[in-house]
């Protein structure tokens, strides 16, 4: 039960992962309508309330954030945090955020988009390639790869920052976008997910078939492997996006030119200026800017979540 349709049209993303070779068809992507077909389970008020508590836990601090964006700098300090202040300054805050310091916020936003595009996109691509290799090829040293990765991740990153800085400096990479992008290209969790996902999602027979048809390894990967990996890729992309979007520590060390700052660093410099002699506290802009920063991530989540389930799931469940 191969899926020639998928092989033939790699452009038709997202491809439905093939059901595997052994006939356990609904494993990767159970159509929702098939769930509990003999009758949908009763909705439970108790369960909803209990889960609602967790939602409340997640949202109350965010409520503070949302309410705070409607306040002026003075109102922020002078009124109760979980309720609105007299003036509704949301629109004002938004426009000031975009115009403050000669509109540098827009620049930071564009920088962040670039870092996320190249960093998260690249990280996903490298993880896909690596996962594909680990899942589908035998090569010397393969067993050591993941042990080395986990071992390296276990070393506290803050201690590596200065050595990394010195190395990057010698290579002339500091204070350039590359200093942010290159480290973002590595996602150990992404590699792991793609490894397991590729093991499941790509039938070896399909690859063999492509090879017999005379396809080279690269072509086999792009025409057979990549389309089948699309759902997993989206998963990794989402995780790496959030990670790159909120990346703070490394840019802090690597970048000195505010023109290359990502949003997190820029907002932090606005936050820090409240604590300097003659500096103007602009907590209201920091907060508004933060909310604006979160919105694209929410949009990405909503956009990508339909791919999510099948993607992550293959990474964790096998029968």
């Amino acid at each position: 039960m191969s899926s020639p349709a998928t092989t033939a049209s790699p452009a038709s993303l997202p491809a439905r992962p093939p059901a595997g070779t052994s006939g356990s068809a609904p494993r990767l992507r159970t159509p929702r309508t098939k769930r509990h077909s003999p009758g949908r389970p009763r909705r439970s008020v108790l369960l909803t309330v209990l889960t609602g508590l967790v939602v409340l836990y997640a949202l109350v601090p965010l409520l503070w954030l949302v309410i705070s964006t409607t306040k002026t700098q003075e109102g922020l300090a002078g009124s109760f945090g979980l309720w609105f202040d007299g003036d509704f300054a949301l629109w004002d805050n938004i426009s000031t955020t975009f115009t403050y310091n000669d509109g540098v916020f827009t620049r930071w936003l564009l920088n962040t988009l670039m870092y996320v595009g190249l960093g998260a996109g690249g990280a996903t691509f490298l993880a896909v390639l690596g996962g594909y290799a680990l899942a589908k090829f035998a090569f010397p040293g393969k067993r050591a790869v993941f042990a080395v990765v986990i071992g390296a991740v276990a070393v506290p990153g803050t201690a590596l920052a200065v050595p990394t800085f010195l190395m990057f400096s010698k290579m002339g990479l500091t204070d350039t976008p590359w200093a942010v992008i290159i480290p973002s290209l590595i996602s150990p969790f992404g590699l792991y997910l793609m490894w397991v996902f590729a093991t499941e999602a790509i039938p070896t027979e399909l690859m063999e078939a492509a090879r017999i048809d005379g396809a080279g390894e690269v072509r086999t990967f792009f025409q057979v492997g990549l389309p089948l990996l699309a759902p997993g890729m989206v998963t990794v992309l989402l995780f790496t996006m959030v990670a790159t979007w909120n990346n703070y520590f490394l840019p802090l060390i690597m970048l000195k030119d505010p023109d290359w700052y990502p949003l997190t660093l820029g907002l932090n410099s606005w936050n820090a200026q409240a604590a300097t002699a003659g500096g103007e506290p602009v907590f209201n802009l920091v907060i508004t800017g933060s909310l604006i920063t979160i919105l694209p991530l929410i949009a990405a989540f909503l956009l990508l979540q339909k791919y999510w389930q099948s993607g992550l799931a293959a990474g964790s469940v096998k029968e």
């Binding site: 997640a58 949202l59 601090p61 965010l62 954030l65 959030v242 979007w245 909120n246 703070y248 949003l263 997190t264 907002l267 932090n268 936050n271 920091v286 933060s290 920063t293 979160i294 991530l297 929410i298 989540f301």
Partner: peptide, 8 residues
């Protein structure tokens, strides 16, 4: 959502 909130 909380996962998306930056540290600052």
């Amino acid at each position: 959502l909380p996962y998306a909130v930056p540290a600052v």
